[in-house]
Design a protein around this nucleic acid. Structure first.
Lengths: 267, 267
DNA sequence: CTTGGTAGG
DNA sequence: CCTATCAAG
């Protein structure tokens, strides 16, 4: 049995200050994938404490200190760590990290933590960067699946797939995060066999969501988006028994603007 | 009877967040002089609320947004507001404001709120700026006293006068804030008739102090400095009946790193 | 150790 | 509305 949790922590320091440690102890995942770590490697390791093997893509490009950052913490050893999804333009961006982990059955799992660009900003234009990153993901996933291993991509894709995946879908049809091109990218991913565990176990919807703006009453009104995913290769997906979003009971109990997505695989 | 309070609020927003309003309501001064307001005029007025006449020197020089700022809030009308101590080099620095207030006896009071430069930084060198500001103060005070009005200069002078005015005087003999030249400036001010109300009513010392670093256990150990003053012209000083420093009971009850200095004048 | 401004989300 | 960095104190 393999319990996997993914969450955009929105700053590991702030998350711990607000109570992430209690959630982690109670949930006790075998693998924890994080996005927006927003800290140095030293700070990340200090917060998580011992007994973890950690793969961390800290952004290294100029002016990116305290931004982005993705990591994978594993109770089992990490055989190989790979940073960046491939193309040179994304070198050191702190948005992609892979960890090869050997499972009980001897098979290899490539676990991925990714944090896709927000496309919503006009200056500089970021939507093109987002599409380029999605392309890079497609290529990298295809390469990883070639040798038959298990692949699990987790993270904040900054895309809601269908109308049931965000509360205000009508108002957001022309907004980055719910553009036809972005949704089509997820369509083609799922059509080629990758499985969206959140939707498989999340019912018909609308909801559940995984992100709510801190602003106004977005959380209390459940005006959220499902933009955080566990996306598994077919064989791995077939072994899944559960996938739930850990929405905090109250606004005050949130320790991130995102909620964890937690899945169990019988593998 | 005229109750006057002066305090370096270290950011009016932070001070209100931490409980300044309760202190202000309980103390209920006729005139409240503030330093390090660190806010726009609109924000200052929003926080103080109605029923005040306000003179505010907001810093206007490039890159000074959110820094310095001195203000005078008065329950009685302010006849004339003057900003800056005079020399062009201090134009718009947000460290000096005067308010002319007509007293019950028909006399005019020039109340001053000032925030003298910290000299402790090496790059850029600030000690020279501090001495130049002290010179400007001397000249301006002399001019104000010429026509026989009452003058009350309140504020954070960033100078402890004598050994009894800071806990660690031995360790600070070569530090800005307790340099011989700075102490001599206060000596000559008091020798020319200006009166340090805090010392007149504060006993022999050591202490009381008006500022403690936020760092370490400075507050709990009372490792402070008396750098906040009410300095009155001779006639006004003669009418004073009391001057006390409102040190918070506990660290948690502080709403600034400085404590208010509150005096009463029978005039 | 705390302040506010700032860029980013 | 929240994150972190930054200069300043």
């Amino acid at each position: 049995m393999l319990k996997v949790a993914t969450v955009n922590v929105n700053g590991i320091r702030a998350a711990y200050r607000r109570g992430m440690a209690a959630w982690l102890e109670q949930t006790d995942p075998e693998i924890l994938l994080m996005q927006e770590v927003r800290a140095t490697d030293e700070v990340l390791r200090d917060h998580l404490g011992g007994d973890w093997h950690i793969a961390h893509a800290e952004p290294v490009i100029e002016g990116s200190k305290g931004r982005a950052g993705v990591a994978i913490a594993s109770r089992r050893p990490i055989k190989l760590e790979t940073v960046d999804p491939g193309p040179e333009r994304f070198a050191g961006c702190g948005r992609w990290v892979e960890a090869e982990i050997v499972l009980d059955d001897g098979n290899t799992l490539s676990a991925i933590s990714t944090y896709v660009f927000t496309g919503e900003f006009e200056t500089p234009p970021r939507q093109a960067e987002k599409y380029a990153f999605l392309d890079a993901i497609t290529n990298r996933l295809t390469a990883l699946r070639a040798d038959g291993r298990h692949v699990l991509m987790c993270g904040d894709l900054n895309i809601a797939h269908r109308e049931v995946d965000l509360k205000a879908w009508k108002a957001n049809r022309k907004k980055s995060g719910f553009l036809p091109e972005e949704r089509a990218w997820l369509d083609s991913l799922f059509e080629s066999g990758w499985v969206d565990l959140g939707r498989r176990f999340g019912g018909e919807g609308p909801g559940p969501y995984s992100w709510w703006s801190w602003r106004g009453k977005a959380f209390d009104n459940d005006a959220g988006w499902r933009i955080d995913y566990q996306i598994a290769s077919p064989q791995l997906a077939a072994s899944a028994t559960d996938c739930v979003i850990h929405r905090a009971p109250t606004y005050a109990e949130r320790w991130s603007d995102h909620a964890p997505v937690v899945a169990t695989y019988e593998i």
